[in-house]
Amino acid sequence: MNADWTGGPDQLVEADGQRRTAARRFRDASVPLIELWTYYYGLGGDVDEMSLDAYLNEALRLPAAQVGLITTAMNEFFGVDPE
């Protein structure tokens, strides 16, 4: 990943790939959304539950810092993704 985040087409593709992975992990874990959101909130997460829902249904893009927190929340809550 480029250190210089410009939001160009390559980064967008990468972000969407990351989002797809997150959506798949959330579906596979079959954990209620509110539990994941509560955990993510505990890590310092700032977006509301509805935005997290939209993100995990690949309908919304979120700032990189929030994406990182969502990934971390899943790692800590579900266990690290084997892939």
Binding site: E35, T38, Y39, Y41, G42, L43, G44
Partner: peptide, 14 residues
Amino acid sequence: GKLRAALKSRAVVD
């Protein structure tokens, strides 16, 4: 319990 744990964690992270 779960909400209290989240609130505590959030306070430390903040």
